[in-house]
Design a binder for these strands. Sequence first.
RNA 1: GCGCUGUUAGCUCAAUUGGAUAGAGCAUCUGACUUCGGAUCAGAAGGUUAGAGGUUCAAGUCCUCUACGGCGCACCA
Length: 565
Amino acid sequence: MSLRVELEERVAAWAIQNFPDLPPEPWVRPCADERHGHFQSHLAMVAAKATRQNPRELANRLAQECLPPEGWEQPTVAGAGFVNYRVGAEAVGRAVDALRGDLRLGVPKVSQPENIVMDFSSPNIAKAMHVGHIRSTLLGDSLARMLQRLGHQVTRVNHLGDWGTQFGKLLLAYRAAGRPPIEAERAIDQLEEFYKKGHQEAESDPAKMDQARAELAALQAGDPERLQDWRLFCERSAEHFRNIYERLGVTFDSVRGESAYHEDLPKVVQDLLDRNIAEISQGAVVIRNPAISEEPYLIRKSDGAFLYATTDLAAIQYRTKELKADRILYVTDSRQQLHFRWLFDTAERAGCQARLEHVWFGTILGPDRKPLKSRDGTPLKLIDLLNEARERAATILKNKRPDLNPADLDSKAELLGIASLKYADQLPNRNLDYVFTWEKLLAFDGNTAPYILNAYVRTRSILRKAGLTQQPNSPVKLSQPEEEVLARLLLRFGDAVALAAMDRKPHHLCGYLYELAAQYHRFFEVCPVLQLPALRDSRLTLVGLTGDVLKEGLSLLGIPTLEEM
RNA sequence: GCGCUGUUAGCUCAAUUGGAUAGAGCAUCUGACUUCGGAUCAGAAGGUUAGAGGUUCAAGUCCUCUACGGCGCACCA
C-alpha cells in the first residue's frame, strides 16, 4: 500500500466521522513542493466552507485528532488551512520492506473487476498501415495492459475494415487485370495499386462506377469467385499487419472484421424501426436526437446499403452478448467524437447495458500543422517509420558501442528504436493534436525511452557486479536524502498506474517513470552501493526494486527492457 | 451557421482534476569522472498561463465574452 493511501484512509475516516455530508474525494495528496511536507490535506478548507467554520481551527483539530501512522512526524498547519505531513525515514524503510515482498509492486487491485472490451488499431484490408494507426494501436495496447494489471478482464479486439465500398473498386481493377497472383513480398503495394487504379477509373467514368458497385454487390451477395479474391486480399493484408504488430509487441484476443457482422445488419435496422427509435427519411433509415445535432444519424442508405454506424451497432450487440462486455472502450482519433456520441446514444436507447466510452486522441499533423502526408502525398507508412526508428538507433549504437557484433547491434537497434517511438508517442496528453517530426518521435536525449532504459541498465549492471544469483532482498535503511526520495518515489508506483488507467492517459505513467529514472541517476551519483559494506545489502535491495519498478512500468507502456545497452 | 476541441518559457510538452513560490526536455551558457556504464549529474538563464471580466479563502484549471488555430456536421469509414 502506498504511503499516501495509508494516510488517506485515516484522514478519510476522520472526514466521514466529523463531516459525513462532504462528498468523498482524495483528501491527501503529495505536496507539489516538498519544503511544505511530503503530503498535504486541504480537507479543513473544504469542510470549513461547507459548514461556515474557521478553516485554521478545523485544520488544527484535524492535525491533533487524526494521527498519522507510526513513524510519521506530528502534522503541522500552514497557509489558509493546509495540514502538512512528513514521513520519517524509518517508516519509509518499513513501507519499502513491505513493497519488496509484494509481487504487484504496490499496484492496487480494483474492488469490482469488469469485462472490458478494448477496440483499437482497426486498420483497413488492402491498405498499408500508416502513422494514423500508431496512436490507436499503442494507446489501446497500453491501456489494455494497465487495466488488466488492475484486475480487469480485458478482451483486445481488432475491428478490421474488411467490408467497405473500397472493395468494389479494388475488385474492378483486379479482375480487369486478369486476377494476377498477389506476391507475399509486396502484397500491400500491389493491392494499393489496384485500388488506386479502380478508384481513378470509377471517379472519372460513371459506367465504371456502376461496375464497381456491381462488384461490391456481387461480393456481398456471396459470389464464390469474388469471395475467393476477397479472402486472398484479407490473408495477404493479415500478413502485413502481423509483421507490424509483432515488431510492436501488440496482440489481440479477437480479430473480427466488419464483414463478420454483415448478416446481422438488416435485423439491427429493423429492430430499431420496430421500436420507433429509427425512422425513414428521404428513403434512408435515420435516428434523430436534437440534443446531439440537427442532422440525423444514418444507419441505412436510401439504396439499401448499410453504413459504418450499422456495423458498430451490430458489434455492440455481439460484444455485450457473446463477449459479456461490462464496458467497451473505443480508441480512435478525435474526429469521430460525434459519431460515437450518436452510437452510444442509440445503443443506450436500444437498451444496451454496457458502459460505452470513447477514448479519443488528437489528429496527427505535419510541421505545417496540417494533416501529415509524406512527400508523395500519401500517408506516411508505419513500416517506414519503424525502419527509420531502427536505422537511427543503429547509427547511435555504432558510435557508442563499436564492440558490438552485427547481430547484437541489430536486435538492440530494433528494441531501442521502437522503444523511443512508443515512449514519444505516449508522452504527450492524448487529447492534444500531434505535430509529427522525426526528431521528436525518435529522440534519444532527455525525457525519452533510452533515458529510462539507461537507468534500468544501470540497476542491472550493479547487480551483476555484486555477483548476485538472485534478487537482493534485505531490510532497507535510508541514510541519505537521495535514498529516501528514491524510496518514497518507488512507493508511488501504484498511484501512478491507477491514475493513468482511470484517466485512460498513459502519459501520467511516463511522467512518473521519468521522475523515477532521474531520481535513480541522482542516487547513483552520490550513493556508492558496492563500496560501503554496512550499506551494501540495503542499497542493493533499493537498486533491485528500482529496476523492478522501471521494468514493470515500461512493460505497461508496451516497452521491453534490455540488460545492457 | 451550429457543435466539439485547443492556445502555458524561443521550440515540444507537464502541472495528481480548484490548492501554497506554474515544472521538465530540447536549444543556449557554466561546471563535475583515474569511481557501481558520461545514453550521467550539478548549476544559470528563460513566464502578465492568448486577452478582458467574473466566482472563490485559493484559478493555468470553473463561468461569460473576445481573438486566433484544428476538427466534425445524411447517404465514406
